[in-house]
Every structure is written in structure tokens, then in C-alpha cells.
């Protein structure tokens, strides 16, 4: 039934007045409308000749290929730079220090002086701490040592110095 109606419509022979007079108008109408819509759809929905997503896919492919080219290039540059640094560092470590006897003696004396001074200051501080602990001042007189901030967990607390 639907096919007949469709054929008549396409051939231009469909009698619209007869359609109106048909007893079961609702069913005929719905059939016709359905087939009409079908024809419209078939005519309108033509497969396009071009791919609308083609450009996007092409851009994506280009981006991926660019990244694949850049990564090995960057890695090679990093490798070259690191090689330069390694070679440069190796060359500098090969340098030896050559001093005359006089310079060596002077350096020796300066080093001893520096270490002597450091040790002396450290011992002086430890002696002050011991002195404060030994005096056992009454509480009212302890204000004078308020400026000492001592870390009681330090390793020199029980060290005996002669």
C-alpha cells in the first residue's frame, strides 16, 4: 500500500482529493506522510563528496609527526651539551697544583693559625658554659646569663677540656 502510494506520488498521479475522501483517512495520511518524509530524507541526505573532518585529521597527523621529529632532535642536543660538560670537567680535574716551598710554608702557617683560632674560640665557649654551670648562682642572679642561648642537646655538653 505504501509503495503504491509512493509510486503514484513520484509519477505525479497521486489523487490528493481521493485521499481526503478515504474512509480510513488517518491511516492513509500517516502512511503518506511517512513515505513523503522518507522521500524527502532520501533526497536531502546525500553523501557529501568531501570529508568535513579531513582537515582536523590532517592537522593531527602533522602535529604528531612534528613531535616525533622534535624529540630526537632535542635529545641529540642534550647529549652533545652533556658530552661537552663531561669533557670540560674531566680536563679541569686533571690540573695539578704546583707550589714553591715558601708558598707551601706560608699556606701551612695560615692554615694552622686559622684552625688554632677556631679551636680556641670553640674551647672558650665551652669553658664559659662550664663556668656558668659550676657557679650555681641563686635564681635572682641568673639574669646575667640570659644572653646565653645554649642547645642542651649538643655533643660538647659533657666534654672535659684540659
Amino acid at each position: 500500500m505504501q509503495k503504491d502510494k509512493l509510486k503514484d506520488f513520484l509519477d505525479g498521479k497521486l489523487d490528493f482529493e481521493a485521499l481526503h475522501k478515504a474512509t480510513d483517512e488517518d491511516s492513509i495520511e500517516s502512511d503518506f506522510i511517512e513515505s513523503y518524509h522518507k522521500v524527502i530524507k532520501e533526497n536531502k541526505t546525500k553523501v557529501p563528496d568531501f570529508n568535513p573532518f579531513g582537515r582536523i585529521e590532517l592537522a593531527k597527523k602533522r602535529r604528531i609527526s612534528l613531535v616525533r621529529k622534535i624529540i630526537p632532535f632535542a635529545a641529540s642536543i642534550l647529549l652533545v651539551i652533556s658530552l661537552f660538560f663531561m669533557i670540560g670537567k674531566r680536563n679541569t680535574t686533571k690540573d695539578t697544583i704546583a707550589l714553591s716551598d715558601l708558598e707551601l710554608i706560608e699556606l701551612q702557617q695560615n692554615t694552622e693559625q686559622a684552625l688554632f683560632h677556631f679551636s680556641k674560640e670553640l674551647n672558650a665557649c665551652i669553658a664559659e658554659i662550664d663556668k656558668e654551670q659550676k657557679t650555681r648562682q641563686p635564681f635572682a642572679e641568673l639574669y646575667s646569663i640570659n644572653h646565653f642561648k645554649i642547645d642542651f642537646d649538643n655533643p660538647t655538653k659533657n666534654l672535659k677540656i684540659n
Binding site: 694552622e112 686559622a114 684552625l115 688554632f116 660538647t156
Partner: peptide, 25 residues
Amino acid sequence: MVMYVSGTLDIGSLTELEGIIEMAG
């Protein structure tokens, strides 16, 4: 002064240095 010393010495060894250097001198 400001002094910085680094090495495998501990603080006890540093306190002994004064006497040792004095004796060596």
C-alpha cells in the same frame, strides 16, 4: 671573624686542635 671548616673531623677533634697546634709550634 667568620670561619667555616668542613671535613671528617668531629667537634671533639676540633677542640683538641688548639692544644695540638700549640704543641707542634
